[in-house]
Design a protein around this nucleic acid. Structure first.
Length: 891
RNA sequence: GCGGGCGUGGCGGAAUGGCAGACGCGCCGGACUUAGGAUCCGGUUCCGAAAGGAGUGGAGGUUCAAGUCCUCUCGCCCGCACCA
């Protein structure tokens, strides 16, 4: 049942469906049928320069459209319909993101094949799409779970494999126990699975990856080209890519039995030092290199075990102190750190844990001997998995050093620092700002920013290190241990190793006879699928049973729409060239990184394969806000309220039970009302608060339009655009008509503000209603205004306007009408109102002829009683005149 | 902690530095009516009888003029979170 925002009226909504209302059901069904019969939304061939690709993110086929869907598709459809009127050749397709876990879970629960379940949901959803009246070209539908589609996922995989962009490696990866599969980094949100929100654990597995990191720099740089993307999305992507400039620096590892200790310097020759093994670290602060007092490895760093094994081989008398049982203790520490939830381990407020491993290193820049630790805060995946630590100038290192009693050495002085501030003992936190170099031998006195560059040059010259750029972005883990996805087209042969499935054997199809028990990957249990022969040597071999992340499917579906029936290629290059890039993409902000980053990567990779000629898939992006509603507080059993007693709003969701079913709204008020309300109630990119009252308001508005047209059919028949207004009332109406045209056009075209466009149409309706009720306006003008009103409303509420267009006898189908052109001369008023201010306060309003000069306006203003009064006899010091608007007298 | 966004009537929301509150909801009054929860007309930021005054989270500033620009500050929302 539909919920009300008003606690007092949470009962059955009022029955506004009474007499005098338009028959929305018949009207909407009729036009949906007509559009289908006419193939009204077929995509034009050879679009040329007028092409416009409107795309909304395709849905997962859950079987039911929810209000969020209605919102995205209402936005996209209003735009598509408007652009067609504006003469664009519009591609507006739809499909289904049809692979994924829910179908597989349903299979386990109901013992129905995921394909059957999914196809059923798709059929239901298409019916609901139809009921909303969206102008989609269904002949271009792409359904990702069909072999005709996913074979091209496999084909792309092979192409990427050939290029080295798809590869297999073992790594510590995110595992979701609930979903029984691994997840990519992008799919873990605050330590939880993006889909089921259960905690993610870490596993070490061998998996398939896409080398998105190869495009890190371009993915970052090209964000600057995306001028019509929301800044917030671009910032999120920049942060995710996480570019850092710095240097890779080599420290030297001392033998396990070295007599050197921290505080001492390297004694031997430079040549002997060079002979020692390297420990390479990445730092963004080469200017602090002289302040290194220890080093830290990630606990799981593969080198660590060997380092401590060497310690144990040394006679205890010659070891570093505190190294009894070091191998065991290191192993235990590492095991604990790895097992510990990665997201707890890496939380900023996590207590720093560490262990000295009994080894020392030499800083080649100054010969300092420093101890080596392992610690929970150092990550294996970033940089080299080892760091230099400068406690004086890095807060993490500072905390660690303080806890373990490691010396702190200042090498950068704050500007104008006192002797007190320069004392390490007085330091209560790291100083991480720029400053002046101290205690840094040849670089002392330089400012630290300059020193950064000089030191890197010095490192490169001496062979101690080199300039380097690191990214937080990791490669995209695409293996999934689930059935309902695209099989990865790889074969394991005992003799030949990993062998790709030959192209001509694609698709590797999902078997129809898999058993869904809920335990393990069903694909692995289908003998006929797994057992195959090696394409190279023909001996018995096994197929890969992992499937691809479903984000692979959605990374190129917008390309398939350009050429959906191609059986020889994913799409023909020239068809993609015709339509790409997508001119306007619309979808939820939740994909700010995920889908939008993957798709950008895919397009760049396909470009480098010669398949597309654009660098970016989506020119403009509109991230629409979520749909919220009031909800029942589970504790009180009443509508949740804030401290002021006002109802609280939250995203419509199953768990809160505050979803409104679009089908109920369509049934009660019709799709036109639903669409109008959704677009009118808030700007597209903002949150939309559901309101039953607001919906009713839109319904009443459409009813007023209905009655207004039908009771003025005669005027409609006489509609004449070229009628010359005679009276004041006619000039005013003519102005409003043309003003509304201009306003609707610019609001949609330039700002995508549908709410204000609709408000303008409402103002026109109000003006027409007044005009229709008086005898001051001639029928040809009134008719023209009514005709215009229908055209302005058509993108938002297409059914009722189609019906009224026909009944009014305006001729042709409204779909084929161009958007009306406004008459600029009608927007020129013969009289204007001038606001007269004295010292910025409004004292009078003057109605003057539009062509009145400043002198004339001044004269009138100074003659005005109120103005004279507020001047109080003072002489004006200055008068500012804004033509046709305002006169400000300063005194 | 860092980054981003947002604070305007009873509510959703409008305002290229130039009339704050368009449009809609709600509310108030009136008309039609057996009736109105339909429809139509009028009113509706606050204080004030009025004249007038105040007003866009708060404090400053720039300007003839600030919701809009600048500085500081408070509150809410979102994203990232030991990335060396």
């Amino acid at each position: 049942m539909v919920r009300s925002e008003d606690p007092q009226m949470a009962q059955e909504p009022k029955n506004v469906v009474a007499e005098g209302v338009y028959p929305h059901k018949e009207v909407e069904e009729r036009w949906q049928r007509i559009w289908e019969e006419r193939k009204q939304f077929a995509t034009p061939e050879n679009p040329g320069r007028d092409k416009y690709y409107v795309l909304e993110m395709f849905p997962y086929p859950s079987g039911r459209l929810h209000m969020g869907h209605c919102r995205v598709y209402s936005i996209g459809d209003a735009l598509a319909r408007f652009l067609r009127m504006r003469g664009k050749k519009v591609l507006h397709p739809m499909g289904f993101d049809a692979f994924g876990l829910p179908a597989e879970n349903a299979a386990i629960k109901h013992q129905v094949h995921p394909a059957e379940w999914t196809e059923r949901c798709i059929a239901e959803m298409k019916q609901q799409f139809r009921m909303m009246g969206f102008s989609l070209d269904w002949d271009r539908e792409a359904i990702t779970c069909r072999p005709e589609y996913y074979r091209w996922n496999q084909w792309f995989f092979l192409k990427l494999y050939e290029k080295g962009l798809a590869y297999k490696k073992a790594a510590a990866i995110n595992w979701c126990e609930t979903c029984q599969t691994v997840l990519a980094n992008e799919q873990v949100e605050q330590g939880a699975c993006w889909r089921c929100h259960n905690p993610v654990t870490v596993r070490n597995l061998e998996q398939w990856w896409f080398k998105i990191t190869q495009y890190a720099e371009e993915l970052l740089a090209d964000l600057d080209k995306l001028e019509d993307w929301p800044e917030s999305v671009k910032i999120m992507q920049r942060n995710w890519i996480g570019r850092s400039e710095g240097a890779l620096v080599k420290f030297k590892l001392l033998p396990a039995d070295t007599p050197l200790r921290p505080g001492m310097k390297w004694q031997g020759s430079e040549e002997e030092l060079r002979q020692l093994p390297d420990i390479e670290i990445f730092t963004t602060r080469p200017d602090t290199l002289f302040g290194v007092t220890f080093m830290v490895f990630a606990p799981e760093h593969p080198q660590v075990a060997e380092l401590v094994a060497e310690v144990e081989r040394v006679d205890p008398a010659h070891r570093a102190p505190e190294t009894e049982n070091i191998a065991k203790r290191v192993e235990e520490f590492a095991a604990k750190a790895v097992v510990e939830d990665r997201f707890l381990r890496t939380a900023a407020d996590r207590e720093k844990e560490g262990l000295f491993i009994g080894r020392y290193a030499v800083n080649q820049l100054n010969g300092d001997v420093v101890p080596i630790y392992i610690a929970n805060f150092v990550l294996m995946e970033y940089g080299t998995g080892a760091i230099m630590a400068v406690p004086a100038h890095d807060q993490r290192d500072f905390e660690f050093a303080t806890k373990f009693g490691i010396p702190i050495k200042m090498v950068i002085a704050p500007p104008l620092a006192t002797a007190e501030q320069l004392s390490e003992k007085s330091l209560t936190q790291a100083y991480d700002e720029p400053g002046v170099m101290i205690n840094s031998a040849p670089f002392d006195g330089l400012d630290s920013e300059t020193a950064k560059k000089k030191i890197v040059e010095y490192l490169e010259q001496k062979g101690y290190g080199q300039r380097s750029v690191q990214y937080k972005l990791r490669d995209w883990l695409i293996s999934r241990q689930r059935f309902w996805g695209t099989p990865i087209p790889m074969i394991y042969c005992d003799k030949c190793g990993i062998v790709p499935v030959p192209e001509d054997q694609l698709p590797v199809a999902l078997p129809a006879n898999a058993k869904f028990t809920g335990i393990g990957n069903p694909l692995a249990s289908v003998k006929e699928f797994v057992e195959t022969t090696c394409p190279k040597c023909s001996s018995p071999a096994r197929r890969e049973t992992d499937t691809m992340d479903t984000f692979v499917d959605s990374s190129w579906y917008f390309l398939r729409y350009c050429d959906p029936h191609n059986t020889r290629a994913p799409f023909a290059a020239e068809k993609a060239h015709q339509w790409m890039p997508v001119d306007q993409y619309i979808g939820g902000i939740e994909h700010a990184i995920l889908h939008l980053l993957y798709s950008r990567f895919f397009v760049k990779a396909l470009r480098d394969l010669g398949l597309v000629n654009c660098d970016e898939p989506f020119s403009r992006l509109l991230a629409q806000g979520m749909v919220t509603n009031t909800y029942i507080d589970k504790q009180t059993g009443k509508i949740a309220v804030d401290e002021h007693g006002r109802p609280k709003y939250a995203k419509m969701s199953k768990s809160l039970g505050n979803g409104v079913d679009p089908l109920e709204i369509i049934d009660r008020y019709g799709a036109d009302t639903a669409r109008l309300f959704i677009l009118f109630a808030a700007p597209a990119e903002k949150e939309l608060e559901w309101s039953d009252r607001g919906v009713e308001g839109c319904y009443r508005f459409l009813n007023r339009v209905w009655r207004l047209i039908l009771s003025n059919i005669d005027a409609c028949k006489q509609a004449n655009k070229n009628y010359q207004p005679q009276t004041r009332a006619e000039r005013d109406l003519n102005y409003t008509v043309n003003w509304a045209i201009q306003r609707v056009q610019t609001e949609i075209e330039e700002r995508h503000h549908f709410n204000t466009a609709i408000a303008a149409a409402m103002e026109l309706q109000n003006a027409l209603q007044v005009a229709a009720g008086s005898s001051d306006v001639a029928a040809p003008l009134l008719g023209y205004g009514l005709r215009t009103l229908l055209l302005l409303l058509f993108p938002f509420s297409p059914h009722i306007t189609s019906e009224l267009w026909e009944r009014a006898g305006f001729g042709g189908a409204i779909d084929d009408q161009p958007f009306p052109a406004y008459d600029p001369s009608a927007l020129v008023r013969d009289e204007v109102e001038i606001v007269v201010q004295v010292n910025g306060k409004i004292r009078a309003r003057l109605t003057v002829a539009a062509e009145a000069t400043e002198e004339q306006v001044r004269e009138l203003a100074f003659a005005d009683e109120k103005v004279v009064q507020s001047l109080g006899g003072k002489q004006p010091r200055k008068v500012i005149y804004v033509p046709k608007k305002l006169l400000n007298i300063v005194c």
